[in-house]
Design a protein around this nucleic acid. Sequence first.
DNA 1: GGAACTCGCCAC
DNA 2: AAACGTGGCGAGTTCC
Length: 475
Amino acid sequence: MKIQATTKDAHELMHQGVQALSKASIRGMHVDVKYCEKQHKYLNKKCDKLIKKFSKTKLGKRWSKTFLSVNWNSDQQLREVLFKKSGIKPVKRTKPSKGHPKGQASCDNESLELISKSYPELKPFMEYKKLAKVNNTFIAGILKEQVNGIIHPFFHLHIARTFRSSSSNINFHNQPNRDKKQRKIVRSSFKPAPGFGIMAADFSGIEVGTSCCYHKDKKMLHYVRHPEKNNMHTDMAVQCYLLDKFVKEGLEKTLRKGAKNGFVFPQFYGDYYKNNAASLASWGNLPTKGSFSKKDGEKLITGLSLGEHLIKKGIFDYDDFVDHIQEVEDDFWNNRFKGYRNWKKRNVREYYKKGYLKTLTGFTCSGEMSENDINNYPIQGAAFHKLLKTYIEVFRRLAHYKMKSFLIGQIHDELVFNYYPKEEDNVLEIVQEVACEWLPKQWKWINVPMVVEANVFDVDANWAQDSKVLELKAA
DNA sequence: GGAACTCGCCAC
DNA sequence: AAACGTGGCGAGTTCC
């Protein structure tokens, strides 16, 4: 696989991008060293306590007896204890590799979660693993990289095969966000320069929007251009779970998330209905084998449980549900988004004919690619390039107007600033102007509105504290 | 004592 | 027929 900037525009994007991003690395971002050190000690203590608790249980004792030198961080030892000494049946296996052609019995969190239903004593151990990850990877990482309270994460443009960026030392791209507890612990470490505030500007639905620039699918364009009329993820939740109506509060909101993260996005990346069904079931609190019952799933707004509701619709067990999701998949590509499907077919055909692909942003991908790769790379790359071009221009304008506010980095579809309080509105205005109006003028192939969600944190507040949210759109 | 591999998990 | 895209990194393990 090889990818090259084959237009002047693409070349300039890389050169200017490298310069703008390195300036952020050089300037760096402030971290709260005292907080990190305190948190590090506290988490170590907490981890010790959890392990002490676990080591007194049956499984814990068995582990100690089995090995001369116990290592609570060794998955190999855990495997031995669970699957050999205790006779527990593995939930799934790891990917086949050189050393293990059939894969090994997996002991990831998903497996432990299921096993813990019969062995609740595993709970403190699972908690330990979570906290150890936060402590050793994130808090320790910051302490290791900080110099005088400032870290200097790198942003690379030459690593990702899609010409996305990557980040290292520390990796600014994977700081915990979804899990509230982890987010709080880790993001509290990041603070603005004294007297400044943190601001983050997210491009909403950038990958879906960028896919539209390629396939121009009518229905998807309608969804993206008129989100207030129809909402793709809501519609898919209704279809996947056979809802009669969708209500914004309650379980339906979770089911919408399920449809988005368990069906729509995985489908875009090339996943298929069997995996989707399992994911959708777990989002809906349904069993992934056997019959559904009244007890399954939380209550819908109608008063019925989700399990009860599905039985009423003729979905009696998990296998019925899988069949149903297969039909949803079929409808998704052959009916709802057939324009997208046709583009994928054309795209693959073109690649096999010519041996390379072109992205809308002027990059050429050649070499060996799978069909999923062929349809993903151009979208993922161009989506990031929208952010990068915006980053460069915003950077240029901040300097041009001699503003104090500055960019500290980027997270794929999100610009991150330190804003100077008096310039708050100016920064928002610049982002709005550049992202929503200037960018679509530069790249005429952009056929969907650019929408930005700005998160403005209080002055001197850290990255985990409250922020106000503003939506920026073209005037 | 380090390189390479494996697994797991964090982000988009 | 097969079956999820892109990264970084910690920790354990294996091999040289």
